[in-house]
Every structure is written in structure tokens, then in C-alpha cells.
Write a protein that binds this DNA or RNA. Sequence first.
DNA 1: CCTCTTGCCTCGAACTGTAAGGTATGTATA
DNA 2: TATACATACCTTACAGTTCGAGGCAAGAGG
Lengths: 116, 116
Amino acid sequence: MVSVMRLNKKTLDGNIETLLLAVLSEGPSYGYQIVRELGERTGGVLKLGEGTVYPVLHRMQERGLIAARWSKGPSGRPRKYYRVTRRGGTALKQNAQQWAGLVEVMQSVLGDAAAG
Amino acid sequence: MVSVMRLNKKTLDGNIETLLLAVLSEGPSYGYQIVRELGERTGGVLKLGEGTVYPVLHRMQERGLIAARWSKGPSGRPRKYYRVTRRGGTALKQNAQQWAGLVEVMQSVLGDAAAG
DNA sequence: CCTCTTGCCTCGAACTGTAAGGTATGTATA
DNA sequence: TATACATACCTTACAGTTCGAGGCAAGAGG
């Protein structure tokens, strides 16, 4: 199904962007919560720091993949809610395909080696 | 099975190292051939350049994951054959586990989003 | 008053992947 | 002979990522 799609650097590297896009595609959220949620959801397996997440969010916003909206949460503290834009939705699909391609490749190469 | 294993930067990033370790664990090989083989095996999906592979091999050698041996191939040209060391074998297993952990996380988060 | 939680942010260090370029030899071809 | 190609190694410079460490501010609870 992946056939002839070259894996670029982004796939080998920036999976965090894909992860954040996926989380945000389930509904708007904000940095602080995303960090908490990812940690909980994965039982501590994935523990991204704020110093990692915020810059990625900013980059994605610059590229138009997500949009921000300030809003006072129930805690009274202002939160910066991000939502996925149309362009971001397209990017998520592409990223997911690239990811699938990487999984295929890794499995085909690791297959025997990992078993031994 | 992965339970409480933190994914570190190496996992999110350097999958090339894992790939090379896996290939070399099937038997000694040399840079030029590895580049060719990975390209063919994956039908062009994975196309690493020499400028990518050689530095990684050198780094792995420095860390003692692989060892090198010069030897004249049938072409008359000298080749630098690499083999996986014991430490490299351990690293491969760890990397494979990290990879499995990443796959789990990505699937759990992408799952729904990727379907839509 | 102090501390904890929430919630945002930036900076610097360390590392990676890659293109581009360089060296050298054997073989085939004109 | 000259030219080109495949083999086979290598380094350098650039752009991009992740992450720890740290800072700022405001509300809640002791």
C-alpha cells in the first residue's frame, strides 16, 4: 500500500509533530494539558517535557497546521487552546502514511534480528 | 510487555542506528553494500545516502557497537567490513524494544485519528 | 508568608540527517 | 590513449530536533 513513497527525514525524526496533531485532532487542547495527557495515556512511556512541546506547537502554528485561541479556563488562568486547521488535517494524514511506511520498513528489516 | 520504559530521544530519533545494527546482525557487511541493500530491500522506500550511513557507522564503532576489519573483496577494491560486537547485540535488543514501545504509543494515539 | 499547582515561555547544549564534495582504483568503451 | 562508469571510502557545513534548565505569573491552601 505504501509502494513508492520515499521516507524523508521528518519521518525518521519528528514523530512528535504527528503525535501532537493526532491529539489535537480529537479536539482543541492546550500545551500544559497535552503534556499531562500524553504522559497519562501512555502510562509514563511517553513523557514529553514542556520545553519540548511548546516549541513544536509554535512551529506548527507558524506553518499553519494549527491555530491558537486564548481563553480563560475554569481555573481562571488563561489558556492557549490549539485546534487543527484544514492544512493540519492534511499533514496528519501524510504523516500517518509516512509512519506506516517506516513501520513496514522497520519490521521487514528487524523481523528476524529482533526475534533472535 | 513494555510497561514502564521511558522512550528517550534516541528512540524518537535515531532509527537508522537500529536499522544498521539489524542489517549487520545478519552478517558482516560494508558501507557501500549496506546503502545498496537497504535501497533494494525496501523497494526504494528507504534511500539512505552514503553521507548518512558512514558517519553513523563511525559513531557506532566509537561506541563499541560494531567492529571493523579491512579486507580485499573480489573486485580488488579494499572493503571495510563491519560486524556487530557483543555490546552491539545488546544495544540492538534494547533498540528493538524501544521501537516496539514507540509503535505501541503511536498506534494508541494515532489509532482513531488515522482512520478518519 | 510560603509553597504547590497551573500555565505560559525562552535559551543553550547536544545530537542527527543530509547534500555536497573529495579521493582512488578497476573495468569497459570509444 | 582517453573517457566514463561503478565501486568504495571519506569529511565538512548546514539546518533542524529534542530536551533540560530555568524564568514569569496567578490562584489555592497551609
